[in-house]
Design a binder for these strands. Structure first.
Length: 574
DNA sequence: GCCGTTTTCGGCCCGACTGTTTTCAGTCG
């Protein structure tokens, strides 16, 4: 079992303990241990071999034994026994919003419900409403929740949500009843997917502000309207909540609703150890019961003895400790990006001419840009042959004369073929300024095959970077099987950069992978993979992933000046 | 089941809302 398997097993134990109505503290212990394992930077096996498992915070003697079982035997009797008590379908019931462990357990034990279909039947037949402490309303809520699940109202991508919210905020700001107005929640943390949107505001005239909100142009349906909270559904099915609060408490409120849940839990534990209790209204001394309100987040964190923590870091990944000892990173920003090293023109599958793409890069104020059209064997048939690449290189000489304000690198997005060989021979690659190599086919290969394939590309001295290294398409395609730890180590050793692809569907490397790569000394590059001028706008999503990976400008290749970039490219072979 | 700037025992994040109740458990964010 690898770390992910162990973390999943611990998390399953926690869920089954919930079903058993075990002590909530024991449940949390397993949840915490699951998180601790998935955040490990090395194989849990190695920790066991060094006998250091219990030195991991959140793993004590008991859980260490279960983990050792899991790693050594692939299972643990403790989990096996729990599974025997509750069929898998019962655990699935808890995935339904509004259905928790209590309802799932009672539906199973008192009505024999084994899966979601049977729960619906029990709710519709009235059997559920018959149970003590349940009623008509409970049954109706279950049916409504099941309908919503059936309609698959799942999370939407950051790239879809962000423009909608920005438009909405721009419209609301035209109404002078709003003072402060900001998004909170997962959107403010730039999480890759978003559930619903929380807007926070202060207002001189809440009634008028709420009128403006529920009467906006893209409102499909008003779900609720009050003076402190209203909810709407937008045209594209996004639920947006607006909360209006007193200006004095705005800071702690925004902090509270920005989350993440895990960050807030850790922050409250940290505060409690110092005699302070936190809620959305401020900080309360547990001794004097006096509450202090905060109009901004900086002073809120400051009052806890912490540096301001950027929202992208609020994921319970060590940010509180770092904020306490002054070691938070200086995160990379969009302004730090000096060029884009991955873009396409209509020579391959882009929608715009080379000139249009270069002009768009100039308009963004970039110092340099790399043209990286696809190579021959890209599946859809319009990759460039070596001859076409030479021809394109000659054309670029002309383009450079027309655009002296930007440096243009001649490049390719090179196919890594199924056997790990590359589309162009070394002498062709050697003539290029920039080579980014990517996988676009054979996603079903085994982890061994795929890892060998990617490592071969990394080890080629002409390959400068690997594009969208895991191939994931959020919500549509899982990442292919790949030993990322081996990839990161090879990339660091061979001086090969790894891309954070800014396309909202990709965001690949993912934040936690990029963080691990950076820790192992891998150089990152944040690119848009632009296929049209408008795609350059996506750079902010890639930068956000880098920030969530705790990346500083020095960790990102394309924050360097053109001269520094060239210096990096002329690195000595390892 | 874990953990320690008050602790090796006695704590463990906080509040809002809902539905069922008549004082509170369950669920959510």
């Amino acid at each position: 079992m690898n770390n992910t398997d162990v973390a999943d097993a611990l998390s399953e134990i926690a869920e089954l303990l919930e079903l058993k109505d075990e002590s909530s503290f024991r449940i949390r212990a397993y949840e915490n241990a699951s998180k601790a394992v998935s955040n490990l930077n090395e194989d849990v096996q190695a920790l066991i071999e060094r006998d250091e498992l219990t030195s991991v915070k959140g793993i004590g003697k008991s859980i260490a034994e279960r983990v050792e079982d899991l790693v050594a035997q692939g299972h643990t009797a403790y989990l096996d026994d729990l599974r025997a008590e509750f069929p898998a379908g019962v655990r699935e019931l808890m995935r339904i919003p509004g259905v928790g462990p209590s309802l799932a357990r009672r539906a199973y034990q008192e009505l024999g419900v084994l899966n979601i279909e049977q729960l619906r039947a029990a709710a519709e037949s009235g059997a559920l409403a018959e149970l003590p402490r349940f009623g008509e309303k409970s049954a109706e809520n279950v049916i409504r929740a099941l309908d919503r699940v059936r309609k698959r109202e799942s999370r939407i991508s950051l790239g879809k949500a962000m423009p909608v919210v920005e438009d909405l905020i721009a419209v609301l700001q035209e109404c002078d009843a709003f003072q402060d107005l900001t998004a909170a929640g997962s959107l403010r943390r730039w999480a890759p997917t978003i559930g619903d949107i929380d807007l926070m505001a202060t207002s001189s005239d809440p009634a008028r502000a709420m009128e403006a909100f529920v009467g906006g142009p893209q409102v499909r349906q008003v779900l609720g309207q009050g003076l402190t909270k209203s909810s709407i559904l937008t045209d594209n099915g996004l639920q947006v909540d607006l909360r209006i609060v007193e200006a004095e408490a705005f800071g702690s409120l925004v902090q509270h609703f920005t989350g993440s849940r895990d960050h807030n839990i850790e922050l409250r534990e940290y505060a409690l150890a110092r005699g302070l209790s936190l809620n959305e209204y401020g900080i309360t001394s547990t001794e004097t019961r006096e509450i202090q309100a905060f109009s901004d987040e900086v002073s809120f964190y400051r009052a806890l003895g912490l540096d301001y923590i950027p929202p992208e870091l609020r994921e319970a990944g060590g940010e509180i400790e770092a904020a306490g000892n002054g070691s938070l990173p200086t995160l990379v920003t969009v302004e730090d990006i000096r060029g884009d090293l991955h873009m396409h023109s209509d020579w391959s599958d882009g929608a715009a001419s080379i000139d249009e793409m270069i002009q768009a890069a100039v308009d963004r104020g970039y110092e340099y840009v790399a043209l990286t059209d696809h190579s021959t064997t890209i599946g859809f048939g319009n990759g460039l042959s070596a001859e076409q690449l030479v021809e394109q290189g000659k054309l670029l000489e002309e383009v450079r004369k027309a655009h002296p304000e930007i440096k243009i690198l001649t490049g390719t997005e090179l196919e890594i073929k199924r056997d790990g060989s590359l589309d162009f021979p070394d002498e062709v690659l050697a003539s290029l300024d920039w080579v980014i190599a990517s996988v676009h086919s054979g996603f079903n290969q085994t982890e061994e095959e795929m890892t060998r394939r990617v490592l071969m590309a990394i080890e080629n001295p002409h390959v400068d970077a690997i594009g969208h290294p895991t191939g994931r398409l959020i919500g549509r395609r899982e990442p292919y099987a790949l030993d990322l730890e081996a990839v990161f180590r090879a990339a660091a050793k061979n001086h090969t950069a790894l891309e954070i692809n800014s396309f909202p569907d990709r965001l690949d490397l993912a934040d936690r992978h990029a963080r691990r790569a950076r820790e192992l000394g891998v150089m990152l590059t944040i690119n848009t993979d632009a296929h049209a001028p408008v795609n350059f706008e996506n750079i902010r999503y890639g930068v956000a992933m880098a920030r969530r990976a705790w990346a500083e400008p020095s960790n990102v290749l394309n924050t360097r000046s053109f001269d520094e970039l060239r210096k990096w490219l002329s690195r000595a072979a390892p």
